[in-house]
Amino acid sequence: MNQLILKHYQSICSRGLINDKTTMIDFINKQAEEDLEANLAYQALGISPEWVQEEIDAIMVRINKLTHYNVDFVEELKKNLIHQETMED
């Protein structure tokens, strides 16, 4: 999974969409853009291949943000799972 995440991050960087000048605000703005695209795809087409692609784009913006700031998504996901499993509602 980490290799797949890194490969995706590098592909976005190679296109110039993420670089050493990319800020947290840039990532937040991109998240909002991708969330809107996913919502519009759902409204127009329902659960469809287009909606799935937009959802993946939205998710990957967030994972790429974590990667950019040297956060190991997989490790943090594992920690979050433990947290979720031990929470009492």
Rank of each mutant, 00 (worst) to 15 (best):
W51E: 15
A41T: 03
E55R: 10
L45M: 12
I5T: 04
Q3G: 02
D89S: 14
E33V: 07
N2H: 13
L81T: 12
V71K: 03
T86E: 06
Y42D: 15
F27H: 08
G16H: 09
M1L: 12
M24N: 03
T67W: 01
L45C: 10
M87R: 08
E85D: 12
A38T: 02
L4T: 03
F73L: 14
E75P: 03
K79R: 05
R15L: 13
N2L: 15
M24D: 11
M87Y: 01
A32D: 15
M1D: 15
E75W: 11
E50R: 09
A41V: 01
E76P: 01
T86V: 05
L40Y: 00
I56F: 09
F27K: 12
Y69M: 11
M24H: 04
R62V: 10
I28V: 09
L45D: 11
N39V: 04
E37V: 07
C13V: 10
D72N: 10
L77P: 00
I12L: 14
W51V: 13
E55Q: 07
D20A: 11
Q10W: 12
H83L: 12
D89T: 14
I5N: 09
H68Q: 05
E37H: 01
F27W: 14
T86N: 09
V61W: 01
Q84K: 13
S14E: 06
A41K: 07
Y69F: 10
V71F: 02
Q10M: 07
E88S: 07
F27L: 11
Q3E: 10
I47N: 11
H8T: 12
E37W: 00
K79Y: 00
Q84L: 14
H68S: 04
L77R: 03
S14H: 12
A58C: 06
T22M: 12
C13H: 13
V52H: 09
T86W: 07
N70V: 02
R15H: 10
Q84M: 14
L40D: 03
V52L: 14
V61M: 07
A44L: 13
E34V: 04
I12D: 04
M1T: 08
E37I: 02
M1V: 06
L77A: 07
W51N: 05
E88N: 12
I82G: 01
A38E: 10
E55V: 11
Y42K: 14
M87D: 15
L45I: 08
Q43T: 05
L4M: 05
D26G: 13
I25F: 06
E54A: 14
A44C: 05
E37D: 08
I12W: 06
I63S: 01
N19Y: 07
E85I: 14
I5W: 04
M1A: 08
Y9N: 04
S14D: 08
F73R: 05
V74F: 01
D35M: 07
I56V: 11
E75R: 04
F73Q: 13
I12S: 02
P49K: 15
Q53C: 03
K78N: 08
Q10V: 04
T23P: 00
C13Q: 09
E33M: 10
T67M: 09
S48T: 13
Q3W: 11
